[in-house]
Protein backbone atom coordinates (compact mmCIF):
# COMPACT_ATOMS: atom_id res chain seq x y z
CA UNK A 1 0.00 0.00 0.00
CA UNK A 2 1.36 3.38 -0.90
CA UNK A 3 0.76 6.33 1.33
CA UNK A 4 0.78 9.84 -0.13
CA UNK A 5 2.51 12.45 2.01
CA UNK A 6 2.54 15.14 -0.68
CA UNK A 7 1.51 18.60 0.56
CA UNK A 8 1.27 22.04 -1.04
CA UNK A 9 2.44 25.09 0.89
CA UNK A 10 1.10 27.56 -1.65
CA UNK A 11 -2.06 26.17 -3.28
CA UNK A 12 -2.90 29.53 -4.91
CA UNK A 13 0.57 29.94 -6.36
CA UNK A 14 1.87 28.57 -9.67
CA UNK A 15 3.60 25.30 -8.88
CA UNK A 16 2.09 25.30 -5.42
CA UNK A 17 5.41 24.75 -3.60
CA UNK A 18 4.83 21.02 -3.37
CA UNK A 19 6.73 19.04 -0.74
CA UNK A 20 7.12 15.26 -0.93
CA UNK A 21 6.41 15.11 2.79
CA UNK A 22 5.35 17.71 5.35
CA UNK A 23 8.59 17.78 7.39
CA UNK A 24 10.97 20.71 6.96
CA UNK A 25 13.96 21.90 8.93
CA UNK A 26 13.49 25.24 10.70
CA UNK A 27 15.48 28.37 9.99
CA UNK A 28 18.52 28.91 12.18
CA UNK A 29 18.71 25.28 13.21
CA UNK A 30 19.98 23.69 10.01
CA UNK A 31 22.47 26.28 8.73
CA UNK A 32 22.51 26.24 4.93
CA UNK A 33 21.90 22.49 4.89
CA UNK A 34 25.52 21.92 3.86
CA UNK A 35 26.61 21.59 7.49
CA UNK A 36 24.46 18.46 7.83
CA UNK A 37 25.18 16.92 4.43
CA UNK A 38 27.55 14.27 5.81
CA UNK A 39 25.11 13.06 8.46
CA UNK A 40 21.66 13.45 6.92
CA UNK A 41 20.09 12.17 3.67
CA UNK A 42 18.94 15.70 2.75
CA UNK A 43 16.92 14.57 -0.29
CA UNK A 44 14.51 12.79 2.05
CA UNK A 45 13.47 16.04 3.73
CA UNK A 46 10.26 17.83 2.74
CA UNK A 47 12.20 21.09 2.54
CA UNK A 48 15.06 22.97 4.15
CA UNK A 49 14.64 26.51 5.46
CA UNK A 50 18.01 28.21 5.61
CA UNK A 51 19.50 30.55 8.20
CA UNK A 52 17.86 33.99 8.41
CA UNK A 53 19.39 36.15 5.70
CA UNK A 54 19.78 39.91 5.71
CA UNK A 55 20.68 42.43 3.00
CA UNK A 56 24.24 42.80 4.27
CA UNK A 57 26.33 40.30 6.27
CA UNK A 58 25.85 40.48 10.05
CA UNK A 59 28.33 39.44 12.75
CA UNK A 60 25.64 38.75 15.34
CA UNK A 61 25.68 39.21 19.10
CA UNK A 62 28.50 38.80 21.67
CA UNK A 63 28.89 35.68 23.81
CA UNK A 64 27.17 34.11 25.65
CA UNK A 65 24.67 33.37 22.93
CA UNK A 66 23.00 30.23 24.20
CA UNK A 67 21.74 29.02 27.56
CA UNK A 68 20.30 25.60 28.19
CA UNK A 69 17.04 25.60 30.18
CA UNK A 70 14.70 22.85 31.33
CA UNK A 71 13.77 20.92 28.16
CA UNK A 72 14.77 23.87 26.06
CA UNK A 73 17.33 26.50 25.23
CA UNK A 74 17.56 30.25 24.93
CA UNK A 75 19.45 31.81 22.06
CA UNK A 76 20.55 35.25 21.05
CA UNK A 77 22.55 34.64 17.89
CA UNK A 78 21.61 38.07 16.53
CA UNK A 79 21.01 36.99 12.92
CA UNK A 80 24.66 36.30 12.17
CA UNK A 81 24.69 35.47 8.45
CA UNK A 82 26.64 35.91 5.26
CA UNK A 83 24.16 38.31 3.64
CA UNK A 84 21.97 37.74 0.58
CA UNK A 85 24.65 38.50 -2.03
CA UNK A 86 27.02 35.81 -0.71
CA UNK A 87 24.08 33.45 -0.33
CA UNK A 88 23.20 33.82 -4.02
CA UNK A 89 26.85 33.38 -5.02
CA UNK A 90 27.94 30.58 -2.65
CA UNK A 91 24.92 28.62 -1.42
CA UNK A 92 22.19 28.73 -4.08
CA UNK A 93 24.34 26.96 -6.73
CA UNK A 94 24.80 24.05 -4.28
CA UNK A 95 21.06 23.92 -3.55
CA UNK A 96 20.21 23.96 -7.26
CA UNK A 97 21.85 20.51 -7.51
CA UNK A 98 19.92 19.08 -4.55
CA UNK A 99 16.71 17.12 -4.82
CA UNK A 100 15.07 19.04 -1.97
CA UNK A 101 13.42 22.48 -2.04
CA UNK A 102 15.33 25.15 -0.13
CA UNK A 103 13.35 28.07 1.24
CA UNK A 104 15.29 31.21 2.14
CA UNK A 105 14.38 32.88 5.43
CA UNK A 106 14.75 36.66 5.02
CA UNK A 107 14.96 39.43 7.63
CA UNK A 108 15.14 43.19 7.20
CA UNK A 109 15.46 46.19 9.46
CA UNK A 110 13.17 48.29 7.26
CA UNK A 111 10.28 47.46 4.92
CA UNK A 112 12.47 48.57 2.04
CA UNK A 113 15.20 46.09 3.01
CA UNK A 114 12.77 43.17 2.84
CA UNK A 115 11.84 44.22 -0.68
CA UNK A 116 15.50 44.49 -1.71
CA UNK A 117 16.38 41.05 -0.35
CA UNK A 118 13.39 39.51 -2.16
CA UNK A 119 14.44 41.27 -5.37
CA UNK A 120 17.97 39.84 -5.08
CA UNK A 121 16.55 36.32 -4.74
CA UNK A 122 14.18 36.64 -7.70
CA UNK A 123 14.88 34.04 -10.38
CA UNK A 124 17.85 32.53 -8.53
CA UNK A 125 18.08 28.79 -9.28
CA UNK A 126 18.06 26.74 -6.08
CA UNK A 127 15.65 29.03 -4.22
CA UNK A 128 12.16 27.49 -3.98
CA UNK A 129 10.45 30.06 -1.80
CA UNK A 130 10.79 32.75 0.82
CA UNK A 131 10.04 32.61 4.52
CA UNK A 132 9.68 36.15 5.80
CA UNK A 133 10.91 36.58 9.37
CA UNK A 134 8.93 39.46 10.85
CA UNK A 135 10.24 38.95 14.38
CA UNK A 136 13.22 41.25 13.90
CA UNK A 137 13.13 44.76 15.26
CA UNK A 138 11.76 47.47 13.03
CA UNK A 139 14.46 50.13 13.18
CA UNK A 140 12.27 52.68 11.44
CA UNK A 141 9.54 52.25 14.06
CA UNK A 142 11.96 52.42 16.98
CA UNK A 143 12.99 48.77 17.31
CA UNK A 144 9.52 47.26 17.70
CA UNK A 145 9.32 43.95 15.82
CA UNK A 146 7.25 44.16 12.61
CA UNK A 147 5.47 40.99 13.66
CA UNK A 148 3.67 42.52 16.65
CA UNK A 149 1.70 45.04 14.61
CA UNK A 150 -0.84 44.10 11.92
CA UNK A 151 -0.12 47.11 9.70
CA UNK A 152 3.67 46.80 9.93
CA UNK A 153 3.50 43.06 9.27
CA UNK A 154 1.23 43.60 6.26
CA UNK A 155 3.54 46.32 4.91
CA UNK A 156 6.47 43.90 4.94
CA UNK A 157 4.47 41.24 3.12
CA UNK A 158 3.31 43.76 0.50
CA UNK A 159 6.90 44.86 -0.10
CA UNK A 160 8.05 41.26 -0.57
CA UNK A 161 5.02 40.39 -2.73
CA UNK A 162 5.75 43.37 -5.00
CA UNK A 163 9.38 42.28 -5.43
CA UNK A 164 9.03 38.54 -5.79
CA UNK A 165 7.19 35.91 -7.77
CA UNK A 166 8.25 33.17 -5.31
CA UNK A 167 5.85 31.52 -2.84
CA UNK A 168 5.86 33.54 0.40
CA UNK A 169 5.61 32.07 3.87
CA UNK A 170 5.42 34.51 6.77
CA UNK A 171 6.94 33.36 10.06
CA UNK A 172 5.01 34.71 13.03
CA UNK A 173 6.25 35.63 16.46
CA UNK A 174 4.33 34.29 19.48
CA UNK A 175 5.26 37.37 21.52
CA UNK A 176 1.98 39.13 20.71
CA UNK A 177 -1.43 39.54 22.29
CA UNK A 178 -3.47 38.13 19.37
CA UNK A 179 -1.52 35.98 16.92
CA UNK A 180 -4.65 35.24 14.87
CA UNK A 181 -5.01 38.94 13.96
CA UNK A 182 -1.42 39.10 12.71
CA UNK A 183 -1.93 35.89 10.71
CA UNK A 184 -5.07 37.29 9.10
CA UNK A 185 -3.31 40.54 8.26
CA UNK A 186 -0.37 38.87 6.49
CA UNK A 187 -2.62 36.50 4.53
CA UNK A 188 -4.74 39.46 3.44
CA UNK A 189 -1.52 41.17 2.28
CA UNK A 190 -0.63 38.24 0.04
CA UNK A 191 1.18 35.60 2.11
CA UNK A 192 0.81 32.11 0.64
CA UNK A 193 1.27 30.46 4.04
CA UNK A 194 2.20 31.27 7.63
CA UNK A 195 4.67 29.45 9.84
CA UNK A 196 4.53 29.59 13.63
CA UNK A 197 5.87 29.91 16.19
CA UNK A 198 9.18 31.68 16.30
CA UNK A 199 10.90 31.60 19.71
CA UNK A 200 9.31 32.88 22.90
CA UNK A 201 11.14 35.73 24.61
CA UNK A 202 12.77 34.45 27.79
CA UNK A 203 15.62 34.92 30.27
CA UNK A 204 18.06 32.93 32.39
CA UNK A 205 20.07 34.37 35.29
CA UNK A 206 23.56 33.34 36.29
CA UNK A 207 23.18 33.25 40.08
CA UNK A 208 26.93 33.40 40.76
CA UNK A 209 27.51 36.37 38.44
CA UNK A 210 24.18 37.85 39.64
CA UNK A 211 23.20 38.98 36.14
CA UNK A 212 21.23 37.68 33.18
CA UNK A 213 23.18 34.89 31.53
CA UNK A 214 22.84 35.95 27.88
CA UNK A 215 24.83 38.91 26.55
CA UNK A 216 21.64 40.60 25.37
CA UNK A 217 19.85 39.79 28.66
CA UNK A 218 16.90 38.13 26.93
CA UNK A 219 16.77 35.49 24.21
CA UNK A 220 14.44 33.23 22.29
CA UNK A 221 13.24 30.06 23.99
CA UNK A 222 12.94 26.95 21.84
CA UNK A 223 12.77 23.20 22.33
CA UNK A 224 10.20 20.79 23.74
CA UNK A 225 9.38 23.23 26.56
CA UNK A 226 7.43 25.46 24.16
CA UNK A 227 5.46 22.78 22.30
CA UNK A 228 2.09 23.12 24.08
CA UNK A 229 2.07 26.89 23.49
CA UNK A 230 2.98 26.47 19.82
CA UNK A 231 0.34 23.80 19.37
CA UNK A 232 -2.37 26.02 20.86
CA UNK A 233 -1.40 28.90 18.57
CA UNK A 234 -1.30 26.69 15.47
CA UNK A 235 -4.75 25.35 16.35
CA UNK A 236 -6.15 28.88 16.67
CA UNK A 237 -4.53 30.23 13.50
CA UNK A 238 -5.38 27.18 11.37
CA UNK A 239 -9.01 27.50 12.39
CA UNK A 240 -9.12 31.18 11.43
CA UNK A 241 -7.27 31.51 8.12
CA UNK A 242 -7.73 30.07 4.67
CA UNK A 243 -4.07 29.37 3.88
CA UNK A 244 -1.63 26.62 4.86
CA UNK A 245 -0.16 26.79 8.35
CA UNK A 246 3.28 25.40 9.11
CA UNK A 247 3.61 24.27 12.71
CA UNK A 248 6.87 24.92 14.56
CA UNK A 249 7.77 24.66 18.23
CA UNK A 250 9.50 21.90 20.14
CA UNK A 251 8.80 19.10 17.68
CA UNK A 252 11.11 16.18 18.53
CA UNK A 253 9.17 13.05 17.58
CA UNK A 254 6.70 11.85 14.94
CA UNK A 255 3.95 12.03 17.53
CA UNK A 256 4.77 15.70 18.19
CA UNK A 257 4.55 16.39 14.45
CA UNK A 258 1.26 14.49 14.12
CA UNK A 259 -0.21 16.60 16.93
CA UNK A 260 0.56 19.74 14.91
CA UNK A 261 -0.90 18.23 11.72
CA UNK A 262 -4.05 17.23 13.60
CA UNK A 263 -4.25 20.77 15.03
CA UNK A 264 -4.49 22.00 11.44
CA UNK A 265 -0.93 22.42 10.23
CA UNK A 266 -0.29 21.41 6.62
CA UNK A 267 3.40 20.92 7.37
CA UNK A 268 5.83 21.20 10.27
CA UNK A 269 9.34 22.41 10.89
CA UNK A 270 11.82 20.64 13.13
CA UNK A 271 14.16 23.07 14.86
CA UNK A 272 16.05 22.62 18.10
CA UNK A 273 15.65 18.84 17.88
CA UNK A 274 18.10 18.84 14.95
CA UNK A 275 20.79 20.24 17.28
CA UNK A 276 20.41 17.20 19.48
CA UNK A 277 19.73 14.66 16.74
CA UNK A 278 20.69 15.77 13.22
CA UNK A 279 18.43 13.01 11.89
CA UNK A 280 15.38 14.06 13.95
CA UNK A 281 13.47 15.28 10.87
CA UNK A 282 14.27 12.08 8.94
CA UNK A 283 13.09 9.93 11.84
CA UNK A 284 9.90 12.00 12.09
CA UNK A 285 9.19 11.46 8.37
CA UNK A 286 9.47 7.70 8.90
CA UNK A 287 7.30 7.86 12.00
CA UNK A 288 4.50 9.76 10.24
CA UNK A 289 4.51 7.22 7.43
CA UNK A 290 4.27 4.36 9.93
CA UNK A 291 1.42 6.08 11.75
CA UNK A 292 -0.59 6.58 8.54
CA UNK A 293 -0.11 2.90 7.65
CA UNK A 294 -1.02 1.77 11.13
CA UNK A 295 -4.21 3.85 10.88
CA UNK A 296 -5.03 2.42 7.46
CA UNK A 297 -4.82 5.86 5.85
CA UNK A 298 -3.74 6.54 2.29
CA UNK A 299 -3.11 10.28 2.38
CA UNK A 300 -1.56 12.73 4.84
CA UNK A 301 -4.60 14.94 4.22
CA UNK A 302 -6.65 12.51 6.30
CA UNK A 303 -5.01 13.71 9.50
CA UNK A 304 -4.57 17.41 8.77
CA UNK A 305 -6.95 19.35 11.01
CA UNK A 306 -8.82 16.29 12.33
CA UNK A 307 -8.42 17.43 15.93
CA UNK A 308 -10.13 20.75 15.28
CA UNK A 309 -13.37 20.64 17.20
CA UNK A 310 -16.44 22.01 15.48
CA UNK A 311 -14.70 22.46 12.15
CA UNK A 312 -16.62 22.33 8.87
CA UNK A 313 -16.00 19.14 6.95
Amino acid sequence: MTVSTLVSLAPKHDGGLMLKNPVMTASGTFGYGTEYAKLVALERLGAIVCKGTTLRPREGNPQPRIAETASGMLNTIGLQNIGVTALVREKAPIWAKWDVPVIVNIAGETVDEYGKIAETLEGVPGVAGLEVNISCPNVAAGRIPFGVDCDAAAAVVTAVRDSSSLPIIVKLTPNVTHIVEIAEAVVAAGADAVSLINTLLGMAIDVRAKRPYLSTLTGGLSGPAIKPIALRMVYEVAKAIDAPVIGIGGICTAEDAIEFLMAGATAVQVGTASFVNPNAAIEIIGGIDSFLREQGMKDIGEIIGVAQMGRRT
Partner: peptide, 27 residues
Amino acid sequence: EEHMACGIGACLGCIVQTRRGPQRVCR
Protein backbone atom coordinates in the same frame (compact mmCIF):
# COMPACT_ATOMS: atom_id res chain seq x y z
CA GLU B 1 35.93 25.48 24.79
CA GLU B 2 32.53 27.15 24.42
CA HIS B 3 28.92 26.27 25.13
CA MET B 4 27.45 24.84 21.96
CA ALA B 5 24.19 23.35 20.77
CA CYS B 6 24.67 21.54 17.44
CA GLY B 7 28.44 20.95 17.43
CA ILE B 8 28.57 20.92 13.64
CA GLY B 9 28.46 24.57 12.66
CA ALA B 10 24.77 25.28 12.21
CA CYS B 11 23.53 27.06 15.34
CA LEU B 12 26.27 29.72 15.59
CA GLY B 13 26.08 29.54 19.38
CA CYS B 14 29.81 29.00 19.95
CA ILE B 15 31.29 31.93 18.04
CA VAL B 16 34.71 33.30 18.98
CA GLN B 17 36.10 36.56 17.61
CA THR B 18 39.31 36.17 15.64
CA ARG B 19 41.44 38.21 13.27
CA ARG B 20 39.59 36.39 10.50
CA GLY B 21 36.21 37.52 11.83
CA PRO B 22 33.74 35.50 13.88
CA GLN B 23 34.56 31.78 13.81
CA ARG B 24 32.67 28.74 15.06
CA VAL B 25 34.52 26.92 17.84
CA CYS B 26 32.80 23.66 16.87
CA ARG B 27 33.51 23.66 13.14
